[in-house]
Design a protein around this nucleic acid. Sequence first.
RNA 1: GCCCCAGUAGUUCAAUGGAUAGAACAAGGGUUUCCUAAACCUUAGAUGGAGGUUCGAUUCCUCCCUGGGGCACCA
Length: 586
Amino acid sequence: MNIPALLREKLLIALETAGVEIPDPARIQVSAAADLQFGDYQSNAAMMLAKPAKKNPRELAQQVVDAMDSDLCEMSIAGPGFINFKITPAAWTQNVIAQGNAPLLGIHQVPDSQTIVIDFSAPNVAKPMHIGHIRSTIIGECLGRIADRLGHQVIKDNHIGDWGTQFGMVTWAWKKGVDEGALETDPLQELLRLYRNASDLSKEDDKVREECRQELVALQQGDAENKAIWDRCVELSKKGLNQIYDRLGVTFDHWMGESAYNDQLAPLVSRLEQEGLARESEGALCLFSSEENPPKKDPFKIHRDGEWQDQPMIVRKNDGAFNYATTDIATVEHRVQEWQADQIWYVVDFRQGSHFEQLFDVAHRMGYNQVDLVHVSFGTILGKDGKPLKTRAGDLPQLADVLDDAVKAARLVVGEKSHLDTEEEKDQLAELIGVNSVKFTELAHHRMSDYVFDLDKMVALEGDTAPYLFYSYVRARSIFRKLEQEEIDRLNAEQIQLTEPAEIHIARMLARYGDSVRVVLDDYRPNLLCSYLLELARSFHSFFEACPVLKSEGVQRETRLILCDLTSRVIQDGLNLLGIDVPERM
RNA sequence: GCCCCAGUAGUUCAAUGGAUAGAACAAGGGUUUCCUAAACCUUAGAUGGAGGUUCGAUUCCUCCCUGGGGCACCA
């Protein structure tokens, strides 16, 4: 058990001993102290309980302190009635030893493991991934790793857009003239060219637009030629997408795209009709919010033509075709029935919020009440002008280009600062720093906020960046390269003893690791783990400056070596949970 | 018009209802015979506005202002 949990337990016992009524034990907290001058941990218990007990908070705090077993810490009372705990060096020493021996470095697995399907990335086939896919892809991968580490069963599903309108356009342009050579060398670019070609023409020419629509209809009705083109598109696209996923270190358990649900759509829609959930309106089959299941804040009402009416979820268009709402419902069914999902997390752009509100509402009305459906939404990536990031041509920048630019920027910095010897090693380091800086920057921001994409800042030497974390790891490990193997083998954590303030502080920071990982899933917030790692790294650098390791001797040397080792392991482990690999040297 | 999200130092971002709102960058001042100075130490600087709930509000509630987004067959 970690220190705050132990303190809380002792506190509850003390409260009972002091004869204090506790209406809501869950609200009694022991948290890290806001300011170290007060101690290491603090509790608000006395302030919370004083009013119902009709006592003065400070007097109550004093009673509790008198009743509390204090082998771990010194206690004091301050301010309006905070109880402060100052952990003894001996207790910190024990905690470092225990954390170093713990297989998960202080992370506690959840008692109730759940099956969690994570729906993320989901690019469209036949189009390269662009900057807009960064957030979903990187956040989804990170949440998957953390849920897995905490003991959940995680199923990562790439719900690719392989059946949408764009296929009509790609097929139309393909028939007009596909460049087989280009298809071999760079399939995604050639498919993009075809798509843009058709898309541009169909905007100007209604006839082209209609022909594209017909190509899509033909595909959906099973036309052999169009099916063959589609098969090749999907195959080539997956190959191209996998190159980027490899580079990003992202993996999936399934690629259940929209097309995987084709056969289930017609029966699903019939069922919805029979059960009275869907009805026809303006030629389309729609689900409206029901009186039995009114939406929370009435988001389903819109004002149109002077009349109030429900905003529908269209599951069959007036031309008879199904759309993404239909497949999304079928996808929920599949994930619940086939995969026994307890939770489904959709890591998708905030602009689709109302779609998911509708989808979740419909799923519940269909009887899927056990599954927890969550829209993990996120904001927009902006350019330096504060507007959504675009290329000079006005398109969304392609993800591969963005990564290349990041690597180039990193290569410049590496060229100036690196201690590595060969150009080849420097190139590899630049790739690692470039790609991972983009990932870290994404994860370090609150997911709901829009953030400005600034490559130079991401790979910069200074600041809250991935390279700063890498440097702290590399610095900690470099010590061990200077040691004789014999000393490393002889290292014995049982003999350490923390004394210096900087040693105590790094121990204090290390103790927070488990909680820092756990809180990420409270609200799907990887940025909390990022902040923690940066703070840990800062503490480590301070410690490293203040406490020479190799010049020290005996127990002190042993202690500092153990702290370097544990810190580097926690940084490496934490970054791994973010989906980021560390360099051994830089 | 209705709904959703966001407004915090000059800038980019933080902050499970807690004490004096934290960092980073930029600005000022220091540190290297010493384990990677990609570092450390140090100075100055902020909660859009008005109410409310609370012992206590950046956080919860109401209204207003500003910005972004969604609102019938695209995904």
